[in-house]
């Protein structure tokens, strides 16, 4: 599904070029659960952002389903964000002025889903994550784990094929982290492709495959 070929990402400063990613080759198949590991500054998040079309590589090729997505127009990128992938973040990135319900609903609004269908879809997810009672609360009134659940719900409400998670458990207690990982595992079992960035060896093991980045170079690629 995802094909990265010789991806470079670098920043030019006055006298030198700093590489964040160097000649990264990566192939991800549908239904995989990939964990990207590595120390701070190894380029994990940059790699994830490139895959998520939030950042462009400095060199290399990137194709989704054999279609290059490097020189996409803004509109096409938005289409990918709407229909193809969802994001979750370490800091949850929920809109604090909106309720749980509204947060989850947002992507559907942009997608142009009708109001009645939206209600049904959001209600389904709230039900699934046992958050029906909390739908009118604001993010700050929830625990971190619950906030991340909302984040996941928002990411998957549009039924994406690919879920990109940037340290989803980084801000959480281990028990809450485990709960989140269970949810991700379950989603993967249902057929969703997941790529997560993590520091946590134990949570990395939840995935089916781990790649290890060091100074922007893939040093290891193992199947769990």
């Amino acid at each position: 599904m995802i094909h990265l070929n010789k991806i470079d990402k670098y920043y030019d400063s006055k006298f030198q070029r700093t590489f964040v990613l160097k000649a990264v080759n990566l192939e991800v198949k549908e239904g995989e659960f990939l964990s990207i590991m590595g120390p701070s500054g190894s380029g994990k998040s940059t790699l994830l952002n490139i895959i998520g079309l939030l950042d462009a590589p400095s060199a290399g090729e990137y194709s989704l389903y054999e279609k290059s997505v490097l020189d996409l127009k803004e509109k096409a990128k938005v289409d990918y964000h709407r229909n193809f992938m969802g994001f979750i973040f370490q800091a949850y990135h929920l809109i604090e002025e909106m309720t749980v319900y509204e947060n989850i609903e947002t992507p559907l609004i942009y997608k142009g889903v009708k109001s009645r269908d939206r209600q049904a879809m959001v209600a389904d997810l709230l039900d699934r994550f046992n958050m029906v009672a909390k739908k009118d609360l604001f993010p700050q009134q929830l625990s971190g784990g619950q906030q991340q659940l909302v984040g996941i719900a928002r990411a998957i409400v549009g039924k994406p094929k690919l879920l990109l998670a940037d340290e989803p458990t980084g801000n959480l207690h281990s028990s809450q982290g485990e709960m989140i990982m269970d949810v991700l595992k379950q989603l993967n079992n249902e057929g969703m492709t997941i790529i997560q960035v993590t520091h946590n060896e134990k949570f990395a093991q939840c995935g089916k495959r781990i790649i290890r980045l060091e100074d922007g170079i893939i040093r290891g690629d193992q199947v769990v």
Partner: peptide, 16 residues
């Protein structure tokens, strides 16, 4: 600005 970023990721286009 953060909210704009979140919205963009949630699939909001420039015109939205």
């Amino acid at each position: 600005i953060k909210n704009i970023g979140i919205n963009k990721i949630s699939g909001a286009g420039c015109n939205q």
